[in-house]
């Protein structure tokens, strides 16, 4: 099976991760712009970060036969630094129409502050202007209220729910998100938040329509194989292959495909791994990795 992980922060991951993802069938990924752990204080670091998303990270992924896309945005945590946020707003128009940029994201609320709202609105307007999907980060604290408030704001701006992927959903938020016509993405986290058994239960209840599963693997404890592992568990628990393919591949492709910047032929025509292209003399390959071992424990608790 092949997978499309629509939320994974590869700048924080190693080449081992890339190897295991490729071996487990991850064909394409989306890397949302996000907080880097250490708060940025200068707009120049945003520029270099965005440049790496459209440049070196894309190349790095290609070395493992994985097609890399990204979303561009100012995350809510750093939106609270107004001077910086304004500078990033000036920078974003240079990036959002670029090749392989499949949306504005991840944006939304963290503390649900006034500043966060201001830049959520500004970026939603930018997405409208550039006709791009929006990838929404929902807050971890006070999630239900924050999720509903995000949807209200987006509808007010005039964004069509069909163009918005609301991420980090749980049992409490999913119903309203789907009822209002938004895409509902679920991030599978090890140890906390949402394990993949709960994800399977959610699927058994809500089906596969407009549901997306992703890993959101980043610099914290997380699992870049979360999507293939969850697919394996779904299969074991009796979810149909068709439904599994929907939530781990076809749905994210349809949602972000609205950008016109990603289609299946981007990787279907791909002649395997492109180890010599573009960055001459900079091959990243090392020895193989035992994927069977990595996948043997596919239950994420």
């Amino acid at each position: 099976m092949r997978f499309f992980d629509s939320h994974v922060h590869m700048v924080s991951r190693t080449t081992d991760d890339y190897q295991r993802m490729a071996a487990a069938g991850v064909a394409a990924i989306i890397e949302p712009s996000f907080w880097q752990g250490q708060p940025r204080t200068e707009v120049g670091t945003f520029k270099d970060y965005f440049n790496s998303l459209i440049g070196f990270e894309r190349f790095r992924a290609s070395q493992f036969g994985i097609k890399h896309y990204c979303t561009i945005g100012l995350n809510p945590k750093e939106a609270n630094n107004e001077k910086l946020a304004e500078a990033v707003m000036e920078l974003m128009p240079l990036y959002i129409c670029k090749e392989g940029v499949v949306g504005i994201g991840e944006i939304g609320y963290d503390d649900q502050s006034k500043m966060e709202e201001k830049y959520l609105i500004r970026q939603a307007e930018m997405a409208l202007e550039a006709d791009l999907p929006i990838q929404i980060h929902t807050p971890h604290r006070d999630k239900k209220k924050g999720t509903n408030r995000t949807m209200d704001v987006l509808v007010d701006v005039g964004v069509s729910p069909d163009k918005v992927i609301i991420d980090h959903n749980n049992e409490e938020t999913v119903k309203e998100v789907l009822d209002r016509g938004f895409w509902a993405a679920f991030t599978i986290y090890p140890h906390t938040k949402l394990g993949n058994e709960r994800m399977v239960d959610l699927m058994l209840e809500y089906g596969a329509e407009k549901i997306v599963v992703d890993s959101a693997a980043d610099w914290g404890i997380s699992d870049p194989l979360a999507v293939p592992k969850t697919a394996a568990l779904m299969k074991e628990r009796g979810v149909t292959i068709e439904e599994i393919e929907k939530v781990t591949y076809h749905n994210p492709l349809a949602a972000y495909g609205q950008s016109g910047q990603v289609e299946e032929s981007d990787w279907e025509d791909h002649e395997g791994i492109d180890a010599t292209a573009l960055f001459e003399g900079n091959t990243l390959f090392r020895g193989g990795q035992d994927i069977d071992e990595a996948m043997s424990q596919y239950l994420i608790e």
């Binding site: 128009p93 240079l94 990036y95 959002i96 129409c97 090749e99 550039a130 016109g260 910047q261």
Partner: peptide
């Protein structure tokens, strides 16, 4: 104007064939 120029310059990728 700057922004329309940026959109056009990068947006070439949405309309043409590389």
């Amino acid at each position: 104007e700057k922004h329309p120029f940026y959109y056009a310059f990068s947006g070439v990728s949405r309309r043409f064939d590389k």
